[in-house]
């Protein structure tokens, strides 16, 4: 085969987009610290209950024994239940609901935003009016209605949170699709035989991911807060411990034994803050304007 002269450019090591983003991410110290904290919380949620074998529902000691005394690290609540055990078991529920609800809202949001942004026209009109309808609903009230109607189980609470929080993802996805569908490589993919579904899922969506991922990360945090709010109001599964539920059930004793409310409150605060910082770090790492080539 005849060889043709080459315009040379030195071969760099092949680095995929993921490696590149990871490289940018570690440059932000706050995000790295937050990620470590978050990983510790996740590890505690996964392995904690197995290592710390105290049932969070069992009355193990006298009520209101303060942290550090009598062998219970974080003290006991108004029924004499171990708060440390409650925190560890509650971490599972809070994180699981946060992740599941965020995942659900991302799935709904991407589907609606992608269809609206890709097809435009009446599809976009209908879907965006639908999105606006959900946007103007009072979210807490609407999710309370759902939980009240279908019962306070983990699944229902997750769905109730997911259903009210997908609108931001839908709008971001639509905006990204509107921008990307006009780019030349989409036309080039179409010209090489790609169909609508392929263009949406395999060509446009991966390029729309950066802002969606950031939004999804932040949404895990807000879903945890949302769950805490619902369980504080008593709208959560009574058979499982969650952080919000600990706060809610100890609420009457907030002046006498403030630590029973403060400790799970700090857990929520630290977790949500860590998630937000990781989200910000991702945002900086994924933002092409800040990335230097």
């Amino acid at each position: 085969m005849e060889k043709v002269v080459i315009d040379e450019k030195p071969v760099e090591a092949a680095r995929g987009p993921i490696a590149e983003v990871a490289g940018m991410f570690v440059k932000s110290h706050a995000a790295v610290v937050a990620l470590v904290v978050l990983l510790l919380i996740v590890l505690a949620a996964i392995f904690g209950p197995a290592m710390y074998q105290i049932d969070p529902f069992e009355m193990v000691w006298a009520p209101f024994s303060p942290p550090g005394e009598e062998g219970f690290l974080l003290g006991t609540d108004y029924l004499g239940r171990d708060i440390m055990a409650g925190l560890l078991y509650g971490a599972r529920v809070s994180l699981a609901i946060g992740l599941a609800a965020a995942l659900m809202s991302v799935c709904i949001g991407i589907t609606i935003g992608a269809l609206a942004g890709y097809y435009r026209g009446w599809v976009e009109e209908v879907l965006m009016r639908f999105t606006e309808f959900f946007q103007v609903l009072p979210t807490l009230l609407f999710s309370m209605v759902i939980v009240a109607l279908f019962g306070a189980s983990l699944e229902v609470v997750t769905i109730a949170i997911g259903v009210v929080s997908w609108t931001a993802v839908a709008r971001i996805t639509r905006a990204e699709f509107l921008r990307i569908r006009e780019l030349e490589y989409v036309m080039a993919s179409r010209a090489s035989g790609a169909g609508n579904f392929k263009l949406m899922v395999a060509v446009i969506l991966p390029n729309a991911f950066p802002p969606i991922i950031v939004q999804a990360a932040l949404m895990v945090g807000s879903a945890i807060l949302f769950e805490a709010g619902l369980s504080f109001l008593g709208l959560s599964d009574p058979n499982v411990v969650s952080w919000g539920q600990i706060i809610g059930s100890n609420r009457p004793y907030i002046l006498d034994a403030s630590y029973t409310v403060t400790i799970p409150g700090v857990a929520i605060f630290v977790t949500v803050l860590a998630i937000s910082l990781v989200g910000d770090g991702l945002n900086d790492a994924l933002n092409p304007k800040l990335r230097q080539r």
């Binding site: 030349e184 490589y185 080039a188 060509v203 991966p206 390029n207």
Partner: peptide, 12 residues
């Protein structure tokens, strides 16, 4: 196409 800089999908 005319623009080789933008005719390839950047994520693949």
């Amino acid at each position: 196409f005319q623009e080789p800089m933008t005719s390839l999908n950047p994520v693949y």
